[in-house]
Amino acid sequence: MKYAMVIDQQKCVGCGGCILACKAENNTPPDINWCDKITRTSGTFPDVRFEYISTMCNHCDNAPCVTVCPTRAMYKSPRGLTLHDPDKCIGCKACMVSCPYGVISFNWQTPHREWQKESQLVAAGTFTPREMLLRAGGEGNPHANPERGVSYPVLRARGTVEKCTFCDHRLAKGLEPACVEACPPRARIVGDLDDPESEVSRLIRRYDGTPLRPELGTRARVFYIRSYSPERRT
């Protein structure tokens, strides 16, 4: 079994729900998005076109980040996911430079450090962030999702990279990744690329799905089908 994702560009409305769901599920700091977007504006007025491309780690078969990682902190799982072991990461950032998709982020400072502050928003009127964290009991921040910790640290360390894992902890339980589940128009489909009858395989065949930057030979596993067109919207 090899996981892959299809993103239907005609269904995607650019709401950013996937980004928010990912943040909540994976406890990413404010300045890091595992699930993110590429926006492009092209053409000249009045023929202007705006594109919104939802993106995340492409879990490439021929992943440059895995090839260059000197300590094998980036690795391929048996089911084709590109995963990261923060205990082995030395913070060399070679994976970030080598990733042609710009979807790996670095913790330049301690993540969620804003929740360690002792200053109150309103003096003698509100909790300090640190007090709120202690009361709520979250790991690093009050909203931290403990289920993330099954396969990856809930609170990542300063000096290491992080990126999308396709919600491997959810896939292991038979659930869809958070971004897929949260997508209002069901523009994202995850499934088994090795199974020719799976929905992702059928959609890729039917709409000639292509990954981002296929010319680089990374064999990315996130495929995009169709593009937005008001006439074709049903």
Partner: peptide, 10 residues
């Protein structure tokens, strides 16, 4: 590195 890649351009 001057040309930012993917979502980093946003």
């Amino acid at each position: 590195q001057m040309v930012t890649l993917g979502p980093m351009a946003t």
